[in-house]
Design a protein around this nucleic acid. Structure first.
Length: 831
RNA sequence: GGGCGAGUGGCGGAACGGCAUACGCGACGGACUUAAAAUCCGUUGCCGAAAGGCUUGAGGGUUCAAAUCCCUCCUCGCCCACCA
């Protein structure tokens, strides 16, 4: 008997078999089976793949194989998020052209996925850096442009001085570049944006539909959109025509506004201070604030500072003139970039007013303990009764909020509105390795979109791509110089490229018709196959990719290209795999390479351990000992098949199991409990770790049942063992597909185990139920826990009355009343 | 500061009102071996010689019964945060 199972010969054999069998090649036109779209987030082709990356693909593969066995028509595609900075940065360091290194990395990852036993429909592979793909990313840009959802504006934007490019708001983490952690500064630049804010309300509202998404991700998206309801109030500027509008969520405090503040970037500021006598001072202040890294400006303990503009504005409700200031604590991007300051009831305004000696006026008070503006130590932000607020005096502030808002709307002083934290998606990048933005600039016609028929705008390959702060494409004359399609005059191409998140916001549509040269996707097909049934990926995409994809799909829906407006029905976010307390990374030197492990233990071991390591949605610490444990289990399964075969328990049988002794009944019960448990763990939230644990228990049980090697097996024992083992192999198949196929064929079964159907359990085999027995003796309650009993009431009663500890309680008395709730509770009333 | 989640053996974790510590790792003992590895069998929450007692971050509550539900607190993780 071989002690170690021959994974080195088994695994390549079955990998080739699956390819020959076209196991994962799906016919998307079939309607006789229910479709199942199982999607893993398409990978960035990086050079060093580690076991942490594998978790994603292994989970996806287990789900796809399981659904195949459940009779679904399974679509499991893969592609490459192939544009992006790392390849370009590597090229700058003197390596290969990004195109070459990307293609090399793709080849390596393909080999690794195959060795993992992870299967896809490779005919549907898409690669984001190929012109036949990015042509359609550009097409999407044009569609947004047509609907005015793509626009160019000069704005204060996030700039990473290390990556030498602008970043989207979503790519700034704690004031630093999410990629290189360089503090982000603000720059005034003219850039392309997608108007995602137009969809803020729908993106927020539809989160409610995403009931099969992790709550954590839904909360993160809600926070990110950050809706606040309030009132936009127009304050006339004293001596100037155009009023200034501010946004507040606390309109109840309007009578306490003692000054107004503008953000340093406020568009009206320059015009207002043109003739100010302290123009120089203001200018200096504004410039100093804008130069600060974002990290510094938004840090927790930044002191508030500001300058008086020389202007006054008029509070519309009482006609009072209040001074207009500019200060560092007001953000342009939120609300209107202008704030009515109520020092008595807002901590920030309070601090600012104290510092600059601005008046503090209480308008919400607590009658039993009135506030004194002179001695207050902090702003009063609790609820209270309205004071100094003219006709609203005496009302509760909650109620007043409603009334004042209504009053202001009626008088045209303001309107109810919402402010969102979400900002428009900045998609320009001053980098080389991305899809060119399909726009050109003509002296005569201005901004001209590239006509659809001229797509793709090809990315030139022969370019020096060292970042200079401007796109490297600028220095490729043959790219930049072009003719205007409208007037045929001279034109210049836009030389910025698109954020790679544009590429990844629609790839799941392309998989349905990856070769279609006429259209980005086939509307009828995507309508049949989407939303994606199961999306699997890392939680690091909870905001970026998932929000952008939802946005693009909603836009495509509104344009009539797709019939659904949410792309992902179910989302699963797997946890990270940690080594020595850190995320695996080359620089930390804690990378566990899958190639080595597969060489030593085989792919099934790596798969099984990855799935057994812990709850898949949680982070988990990698342990080399744990891998050995998984390997040990596989060998136990392998030896079991040899042992059973040797003892004649694997010959095909026709008779059904009968005449089992107590151990046999118990093993059969365990078998069907395992079938039940594994199936339940596969459905709903994925509990692979407990599914595997229960299969380990079954294996242990079978070994115990087999007993001594000398013992000859009876006919009925052999039949039972054959049944148990065969069903076990079916359960194991999605997890350890190579070994399962090998054993399946050794059982004399023809064809792939994945063409067999997933077994269902026999309820009769588990027809022993656990019941809680509560006995009330003379009104006093005693209980006994979980007695295993048969279902019939008579047998149940007999068993209970014969139970030793219950007899003790009954103490010779008779049962007056039985209350039996099937499977739950037995209540005995005894006098 | 606001929101969400979590705290269980030496470790990863299971149970999610009904036998706490399944399964795995590690450790210990034994078999096999000249020996080691591998493999197999057994033991393994804590205290105690044993009988027995104690145990799910701390404290309280509900219940016949609480790791699980409720309240207070502590600790950790994540998200948002000068957001008006």
């Amino acid at each position: 008997m071989e002690e170690i199972y021959p994974f080195r010969t088994i695994e390549p054999k079955w990998q080739s078999f699956w390819e020959k069998e076209r196991l994962f090649e799906v016919d998307t036109s079939r309607t006789d089976k229910t479709k199942y779209y199982c999607l893993v987030m398409f990978p960035y082709p990086s050079a060093t793949l580690h076991v942490g990356h594998g978790r994603n693909y292994i989970i996806g593969d287990v789900v796809a194989r399981y659904k195949l066995m459940r009779g679904f028509n399974v679509l499991a595609p893969i592609g490459w998020d192939a544009f992006g900075l790392p390849a370009e940065n590597a090229a700058i360091k003197g390596g290969l052209h990004p195109k070459i290194s990307t293609l090399n990395n793709i080849a390596t990852m393909k080999r690794q996925l195959r060795q993992w036993g992870v299967c896809y429909d490779w005919r549907r592979e898409v690669t984001a850096c190929f012109p036949d793909y990015y042509k359609w990313s550009q097409w999407i840009f044009l569609k947004l442009y047509e609907k005015s959802l793509a626009y160019k504006k000069r704005a204060a934007v996030n700039w990473c001085s290390s990556c030498q490019t602008v970043l989207a708001n979503e790519q700034v983490v704690n004031g630093a570049c999410e990629r290189c952690e360089t503090p982000v500064i603000q720059k005034f630049l003219e850039q392309w944006f997608f108007k995602i804010t137009d969809y803020a309300e729908r993106l927020l509202k539809d989160i409610a539909q995403l009931t099969h998404w992790p709550e954590r991700v839904r909360v993160m998206q809600r926070n990110w959109i950050g809706k606040n309801e309030g009132v936009a109030i127009h304050f006339p500027v004293d001596g100037e025509g155009e009023p200034l509008t501010c946004f507040t969520t606390r309109v109840d405090t309007i009578y306490g506004a003692t000054y107004m503040v503008l953000a340093p970037e406020h568009p009206r500021l320059q015009e207002l201070i043109r003739d100010s006598k302290n123009k120089g001072e203001i200018q200096q202040f504004v410039e100093r604030i804008l130069r600060q890294p974002q990290e510094e400006r938004s840090a927790l303990e930044v002191k508030k500072e500001g300058v008086f503009t020389g202007w006054h504005v008029v509070n519309p409700v009482n006609g009072r003139k209040i001074p207009l200031w500019v200060a560092n604590y007001v953000l342009l991007e939120y609300g209107t970039g202008a704030v009515m300051a109520v020092p008595a009831h807002d901590q920030r305004d309070f601090e600012f007013a104290k510092k600059y000696g601005l008046p503090i006026e209480v308008v919400i008070d607590q009658p039993e303990n009135p506030l004194n503006p002179l001695t207050m130590k902090e702003a009063y932000i609790e609820e209270g009764i309205m004071v100094h607020s003219e006709l609203f005096n005496g009302l509760g502030n909650r109620e007043a909020m409603e009334k004042i808002a209504h009053f202001m709307e009626k008088k045209g002083m303001g309107r109810r509105t919402s402010a969102y934290r979400l900002r428009d998606w900045l998609i320009s990048r001053q980098r080389y390795w991305g899809a060119p933005i399909p726009i050109l600039y003509c002296n005569a016609c201005g901004i001209v979109p590239v006509p659809e028929k001229d797509l793709p705008v090809l990315l030139p390959e022969n370019v020096r791509f060292r970042p200079t702060g401007e796109s490297p494409l600028k220095d490729a004359p043959e790219f930049v110089k072009t003719r205007c399609p409208k007037c045929k005059g001279e034109g210049k191409r836009e030389f910025d490229t698109m954020d790679t998140f544009v590429d990844s916001s629609w790839y799941f549509l392309r998989y349905l018709s990856p070769q279609n040269a006429e259209r980005p996707f086939d509307t009828a097909l995507v309508n049949r196959w989407l939303p994606v049934d199961q999306y699997i990926g890392g939680v690091e995409h909870a905001i970026l990719h998932l929000l952008y994809s939802r946005f693009i799909v909603k836009v495509l829906h509104d344009l009539g290209y797709v019939g659904f407006d949410e792309p992902f029905e179910r989302l699963f976010t797997q946890g990270m795999i940690i080594k020595d307390g850190f995320k695996m990374s080359k620089s930390k030197g804690n990378v566990v390479s899958p190639d080595e492990l597969i060489e030593r233990f085989g792919a099934d071991t790596v798969r099984l351990y990855t799935l057994f390591i812990g709850p898949p949605e949680k982070d988990a610490e990698w342990s080399d000992r744990g891998v050995e444990g998984a390997f040990r289990f596989l060998n136990r399964v392998w030896r079991l098949s040899q042992l059973l075969s040797k003892r004649g328990a694997l010959v095909p049988v026709s008779s059904a199991v009968s005449g089992l002794n107590e151990e046999g009944v118990s093993l059969r019960r365990k078998l069907h409990l395992t079938l039940k448990k594994v199936t339940e763990d596969m459905e709903g939230s994925f509990r692979f770790n407990t599914a595997i644990a229960s299969m380990m228990e079954l294996v242990n049980e079978i070994y115990r049942y087999l007993g001594e090697e000398e013992k000859t097996l009876q006919e009925n024992e052999r039949v039972l063992l054959r049944e148990a083992f065969e069903l076990l192999v079916l359960l194991l198949a999605p997890f350890i597909p190579h070994l399962a196929e090998e054993i399946w064929s050794s059982l004399g079964r023809k064809g792939s185990v994945f063409r067999a159907s997933w077994p269902s359990y026999d309820p009769n085999a588990i027809a022993v139920e656990e019941v809680t027995i509560v006995i009330q003796v003379n009104g006093k309650v005693r209980s006994k826990l979980n007695v295993a009993v048969d279902l019939s009431d008579e047998l149940l009663k007999e068993k209970i009355l014969n139970d030793e500890s219950i007899r003790k309680w009954l103490d010779g008395k008779t049962v007056k009343q039985w209350v039996i709730v099937p499977k739950k509770l037995v209540n005995l009333v005894v006098t």
